[in-house]
């Protein structure tokens, strides 16, 4: 199997824009993430509860959004080469019933020092940035 991410990685240069990946977030994924992560907070599954605490609707786990951005990093370097990853949760990803919400993640290569590249990430949902100062460090 040709590892596209790694082939691309050997040619990384600072400032390079990396192609976007679209992830689909829906209610089924929220249930699966809740079960896999153990985070069963009802704001991520129960519309009535979410609205009762002032949210517009069910929202995705911030860590699910970050996890998908992490998958973007894994695709670049292999999961074993992701050594740092951080983000702020600046806007909720609202997930209405029977809806596939698109999360578009893209990256830009930052500093490359000692075989490690900083990747600045952009995560967009409905044209709104949902993660702030998201970045990873990968081993090349």
């Amino acid at each position: 199997m040709v590892d596209v991410g790694r082939a691309r990685m050997s040619t990384f240069i600072t400032g390079q824009e990396l192609p976007a990946t679209t992830f689909i977030i829906n209610r089924a994924l929220l249930v699966n993430y809740a079960n896999a992560s153990g985070d069963q907070n009802p704001i991520h599954q129960d519309e009535v509860f979410a609205k009762s605490v002032g949210l517009p609707d069910v929202i995705a786990h911030g860590m699910l959004t970050m996890g998908l951005a992490g998958k973007y990093l894994s695709d670049l370097s292999g999961a074993e080469n992701v050594i740092e990853f951080s983000a702020k949760f600046i806007k909720p990803v609202v997930v209405p019933v029977n809806t596939d919400v698109e999360l578009i993640v893209s990256g830009k290569v930052g500093e490359i020092i000692d075989g490690r590249a900083k990747i600045e990430l952009l995560a967009i949902c409905n044209e709104v940035k949902v993660l702030g100062v998201a970045k990873g460090v990968i081993k090349l």
Binding site: F23, L29, N32, Y33, A36, S37, G38, D39, M63, L64, M66, G67, L68, G70, K71, L73, S74, D75, G78, A79, E80, V82, F85, G136
Partner: peptide, 19 residues
């Protein structure tokens, strides 16, 4: 790893520690 669509299921994804 499967929920996030990761292809390597033998090691934990970068955010697994949060669980």
């Amino acid at each position: 790893a499967s929920v996030l669509g990761e292809t390597n299921l033998d090691i934990a994804p970068p955010t697994f520690a949060i669980s």
